[in-house]
């Protein structure tokens, strides 16, 4: 694990998301109504819609392009749709959002 400080929790809207640019594409960082954070690829496996622009509800996000719904916890598509979005370890420490750089690097190398 090598935690990278990517910003303050206040920079992400409640029930919203922001993106972090990485070498292998954008990662969406979500903030739920209960102030939990989740990180996963910003790219919907269906038609590459930007998941960070979706509506966040509970522990789920709905892709803005065709309404696929994904679990923020597992990245799994919900309901009848079939697909998975890669997720990344992320945590909050003293109001700062920390993303696991080692995991990002690992995926890049793979």
């Amino acid at each position: 694990m090598s935690w990278i400080d990517i910003g303050s929790i206040d920079d992400v809207p409640v029930r919203g998301a922001r993106v972090v640019k990485t070498a292998q594409g954008c990662v969406a960082v979500f903030r739920t109504a209960a102030d939990e954070v989740f990180a996963m690829s910003d790219t919907c496996p269906h038609k590459a819609g930007p998941l960070s622009e979706g509506i966040v509800h509970g522990h789920k996000v709905t892709c803005p392009l065709h309404n696929w719904v994904f679990s923020l916890e597992t990245g799994e598509a919900q309901g009848a749709d079939d697909g998975r979005v890669p997720t990344y370890p992320v945590r909050i420490d003293a109001g700062r959002i920390l993303l696991d750089g080692a995991e990002l690097a690992k995926r890049t190398a793979a």
Binding site: G7, D11, V20, K21, T22, A23, C26, L104
Partner: peptide
């Protein structure tokens, strides 16, 4: 708010 929260492409 309309831009990326962070840009890690250089670090990586």
């Amino acid at each position: 708010a309309w831009s990326a929260l962070a840009d890690l492409t250089l670090e990586a």
